[in-house]
Design a protein around this nucleic acid. Structure first.
Lengths: 237, 237
DNA sequence: AGAGTATGAATGAACG
DNA sequence: CGTTCATTCATACTCT
C-alpha cells in the first residue's frame, strides 16, 4: 500500500456508511489528507516509542542477564517490521534543477518577498517543469531568505567566543525580548520548564499508551469531549 | 474504529505536494475499507507491542529491584549535557499533545478568538498540562485562525494551469485546488479524538516514558533513562 | 550503509 | 487581523 503519495482532491468527509450515493455518483470512504496525516503521525509516534522501548528492554535484558532472570524477547515480533515505514514516511517536494534555476534567478532579482500574485505566476511557470504548488514556492522563498540572512549573520558575527552562547543569541541580537509582558513567557524558566513540566501530563500520556482506543476494546473515546462546552474548562481535567 | 463514521464539518482537503493531475486525468487516492482495516491493525499492533513492552519493563524493573542491583544512573551524566544544550536552545513554547488537544477542542467550538478572560481560563486549564502562558494561548488562537483562513483563501483561488475537474471534485464544490499554504485545518476531522499527536511531540512522548533523568536522577524509575539517547536528534543547528 | 548536511515544511512569535 | 520572521523538525541527499 502506498498512500504516501497523497494527492489532494477536495474530499469532504461525509458519512459514507454504506457507500455514499450522492447525485448519482458513487463514492467510497475516503480519508482526507489531513486525516491521513494524523494517522501517519500516530503511527509514527507508536513506531518511535516502540523503538525506544525495544532499546530500553534490550539494555534491561542485558542487565537482567547478569541478575539471572530473563523474559522473552517479544520485540523480535515480526509484526513490527511491517510496512510501517511506508506509512510513516512523508514525502516532500523537491525542486527540479530547472525549477531551482528559475527560483534562484527570481530570488537574485532582489525583489524580496514575492506577492501572492507573483507566487501564482511563478508557480504557473514552474509547473511547466514539474509538479509544484504555490505552497512550495512560498516556502522556498521563505526558506531562501531566512537562510541567506542567517548565513550572513553567522559570517559577520563570528568573533571567536564561547560557542554555546553565540550561536543562538548573537545571530539575531534584536530577538531578545524581555518577558515583562503581562504574562510570563517560558523563556525565563527554560531550565525548570523543560525539566519539570511533564509530570502533570504523564498520566495522559499513559492513557495514550495503555488505553484501548486502538485495540478497540472499549471503543470509548472522546474523553476530551469534556471540553466541548466552551464555558467550563474549570473542570480541571 | 471510529474515524470511519465521522460526520465532520466540511473540511476541505489541502496538503498536496504533487498535484493529482497526470495526463489530464485527475486521480484520487482513497482508502478502501481494506486499507483502513490494515491501518487499524497496524496501529493496534503497535499499541499492543507498546503495552507489552511496558509491562515487561515493569517486571524487569521489579526484579531488578529485588535483585538489589540497581545499576544506577550511569547513563544520566552524558545525557544531562545534551539535555542542557537542548534546554538552553529552547526559546519557544511547544504545546504538549494534551494541550494541543484541548486547544483544538476549544477552537472547534468556533467561538472565535477568546476574550481576555477566556484566555486566562484556558491558560489556567492548560497550565495543568505543562508550562504555558496567556501569550502562548493568545498566539495560538491567532495563528490557528489566520492559517485556517489563509488556507481557504488559497483554496478558492486557482491558477488556470491544470484544468481538469473531476467527478469527485464537482461532487462537492470546485473550490479547492491541489495547492495550499498551510496544512492546518480548523475543522478538525476529529479522526482520533484522543490520539492526536504531532511529530514535534514525539519527543514529549518519549520523555514521558523516560525523563526522570531530569527530575529524579536516581529516581525509582531510573531504568527508563535508557531513553536518553532520544534527545540526540534534537541538537539541530 | 551509516553519519552528516541541505532543505522543505510546520509553527510559535512578532510586526504593521 | 493578516503577513512575515525565526526556529525547529523531518527528510532527501551526499559523502565517506
Amino acid at each position: 500500500m502506498e498512500w504516501e503519495n497523497r494527492e489532494s482532491q477536495e474530499n469532504q468527509n461525509q458519512r459514507a456508511e454504506n457507500g455514499g450515493n450522492v447525485n448519482g455518483v458513487m463514492y467510497v470512504k475516503v480519508m482526507t489528507d489531513e486525516q491521513l496525516e494524523t494517522l501517519r503521525k500516530q503511527i509514527a509516534v507508536y513506531a518511535t516509542i516502540c523503538e525506544q522501548l525495544v532499546e530500553m528492554h534490550k539494555s534491561l535484558s542485558a542487565q537482567q542477564d547478569l541478575a539471572g532472570g530473563r523474559l522473552g524477547n517479544i520485540y523480535c515480533d515480526p509484526l513490527m517490521t511491517s510496512a510501517v515505514h511506508k506509512i510513516t514516511a512523508r514525502q516532500r517536494w523537491t525542486p527540479t534543477p530547472v525549477q531551482l534555476q528559475i527560483l534562484e534567478s527570481i530570488f537574485d532579482q532582489g525583489n524580496g518577498t514575492p506577492s501572492k500574485q507573483k507566487i501564482k505566476e511563478i508557480t504557473t511557470e514552474l509547473s511547466q517543469h514539474g509538479q509544484i504548488s504555490e505552497t512550495n514556492v512560498y516556502n522556498w522563498f521563505q526558506n531562501r531568505r531566512a537562510r541567506s540572512k542567517r548565513k550572513q549573520a553567522v559570517a559577520s558575527s563570528n568573533n571567536g567566543e564561547s560557542e554555546v552562547e553565540t550561536e543562538v543569541d548573537s545571530l539575531h541580537e534584536k530577538k531578545t525580548k524581555p518577558e515583562n509582558f503581562s504574562s510570563q513567557q517560558n523563556s525565563a524558566p527554560r531550565l525548570a520548564d523543560d525539566l519539570c513540566f511533564h509530570s502533570p501530563e504523564i498520566t495522559s500520556e499513559l492513557h495514550f499508551l495503555g488505553d484501548d482506543h486502538l485495540t478497540g476494546k472499549t471503543g470509548m473515546s472522546g474523553n476530551y469531549n469534556l471540553y466541548e462546552h466552551a464555558e467550563d474548562y474549570s473542570m480541571a481535567g
